[in-house]
Nucleic acid binder design. Structure first.
Lengths: 345, 345
DNA sequence: AAATTCTATTAAACTGATTTAATGACATAA
DNA sequence: TTATGTCATTAAATCAGTTTAATAGAATTT
């Protein structure tokens, strides 16, 4: 069905070996082909619409020109941008194989298995966090010798490069900004299922401690660990607002670990007539796309997911090409965006 | 480096053929293997961490279990959701190869070429619209016999199934909704680079005509065809608002072909003190994610991109498996979401 | 006991490329 | 004239599987 080297060989009366060399212009060095032969072959290839069967080529060359990209989710715009950054950087020389695990460790495993079966040249992965798969990552790296670059979070026990934004800095700067506005009772609204809660908690904690607000530190954590759909967020936002309203010495500001959750809190406040930022300042932590919109204008801490994707891809391509000098992590800077949900107390 | 059948054969003292059959459980029918052999082989495979080299397997089976996914862009949440729908449906049996053409025909060509080199089992594509590549699509379908499913828009001259939402209905219903609210001078804000302007214009036109508002039909079109970044949208929104303000018999409502452009128009109105919906009703046409948010609440016409992805994937899988009964288009219904930017005049 | 059938296994051909080593045809040098 | 060296080309091995056809041995039938 598809055109093969053999067909071109028959067509031109040359051998398969010659055709192979001629098509890839490999006449230099050890081997030489007459210009005439090269022309004949390339014309025939063009006319027949020949396209290398990369599967076959990969069998001998031990390079598939495919890269596995395993991301956590595909809603919101965070991973979308990471993905865009990766695709931009590696295509068209490399082809990304896409997998989305949605924090399901079984899915993660089978997607990684698939990548290995396809013998990808490299892997960019957002680790789901499930410890059952750590050994699999180790196998990929150490047995299959596939270069791996992680985004967002490290894998405990494995020394793999991680590309992420400065999560510590996000929380630290957000908290600091609120402190600078005169707030003292600042609470961190967090959740187990969110990304890197440790870094965020650490940044918040450090900033509060440095300001001497240690006694006001409070981390509001949700028991929900999975299925953060719109409904889950809404429910959590309700609970947060409920408990805030009944308290005597209310927090004057929230640092919310996730902009989407922050939106729900804003909506909840709106419904109950709680004025933001009059009664309560709200600061998000990841500057999702809608945050900057008229009508929303959530103060947040901007990160650059497309840069994460870009850096991860660059890092990986270097590894694939043997430039293993850069085995280190990359932590990308963040920037506070003060909009209309935060104010001086 | 990687474990091969040969290695397992050596380990177990059996032949490569036996090992191949045993691993895939192909002892039924013509061939039979003793349960003992099967057990031996599978244990050895497990212990050595064997993973089929799908490249090699694909060479003979002429099925790669890979599907090319060519999308137009990766910002906003439209294609992201399509992609999510596709991935959900086809993984993990099939692996999506991702390509983003950004309406660049050269890029589109090289990505399609790559897919063909990888001998994908099928292709889901958002056609860029550049006529230079039509022949390539024809080759893919007719020479390489690769099943193709299109999303969003058809390719002129090729009879390929298209999965899209009801673009005509979007514009028709949006216009009708405004007409029902008493509006008569309704303008369509459109742009060449946007998706399927013909359908949208048609829907708008028909609704206006049916209501006898033919003399008020006005399509405001931008000369920009590419690079619709935030800046381009902003600039266009400014122009639209400018020309609206100086007019004597202003439109009382806009149907805006793209929610992102609608947001910019809202922002522009906000700045100039034009009240929406008091002075002007604004209706979007694709219900992007932020449209429903508190503070934005743009009236729009909801579509279901994840359904598009899902349907496209289902359609493609059917084609791959030879169930070619469904060669028809799928047009998914849309739904008017009346929020706070439209009102009775 | 010979012929037949069945069972378990495998040698060998094949997929479509790449690469190594060999070959034959010339031209040049001894 | 023979030996040496280029130059262009190709046969053959290889990659890691799948599949067909063959084979050897045991079990069953006649």
């Amino acid at each position: 069905m598809a055109v093969t080297l053999k067909k071109i060989a028959e067509e031109t009366g040359l051998s398969v070996a010659t055709v192979s060399l001629a098509i890839r212009g490999k006449s230099a060095g050890k081997f030489s082909l007459s210009p005439e032969t090269i022309k004949t072959v390339q014309e025939a290839a063009g006319k027949l619409g020949y396209r290398t069967n990369r599967l076959a080529a990969s069998l001998t060359s031990s390079s598939t020109k495919m890269v596995g990209v395993l991301i956590a989710a595909l809603h919101g715009d965070y991973y979308e941008k990471i993905l865009a950054g990766i695709e931009q950087e590696i295509a068209p020389e490399y082809t990304p194989l896409l997998g989305v695990h949605n924090y399901d460790s079984e899915r993660e495993r089978s997607l990684l298995d698939g990548f290995m079966c396809n013998r990808v040249d490299g892997l960019i992965a957002a680790f789901s966090g499930s410890s059952e798969n750590i050994e699999l990552y180790r196998t990929i790296r150490e047995v299959y010798k596939i270069p791996v670059v992680l985004v967002d979070r490290p894998i405990p026990g494995l020394d793999l490069p991680v590309i992420r934004c400065d999560h510590f800095g996000q929380a630290f700067q957000a908290t600091q900004t609120l402190l600078d506005l005169g707030h003292r009772r600042i609470h961190l609204v967090s959740a187990v299922g969110f990304l890197n809660p440790e870094y965020h908690q650490d940044g918040y904690f450090q900033a509060m401690k440095a300001a001497g607000c240690r006694e006001h530190v409070k981390i509001i954590t949700s028991p929900y660990t999975k299925g953060w759909g719109k409904d889950g967020l809404r429910k959590f936002a309700k609970e947060v607002t409920d408990s805030w309203q009944v308290l005597e010495d209310r927090a004057t500001a929230f640092v919310v670990q996730n902009d989407w959750l922050a939106y729900e809190i804003l909506a909840e406040c709106h419904e109950r007539g709680i004025r933001v930022p009059g009664d309560l300042s709200v600061m998000g932590l990841d500057d999702c796309l809608p945050s900057s919109m008229v009508g929303v204008e959530l103060s947040s801490v901007a990160q650059v997911p497309d840069e994460i994707g870009f850096e991860a891809a660059r890092h990986l391509l270097n590894s694939i090409n043997g430039h293993d000098d850069e085995n280190s992590d990359v932590i990308l800077p963040v920037e506070v965006k003060t909009r209309k949900t935060t104010a001086r107390i």
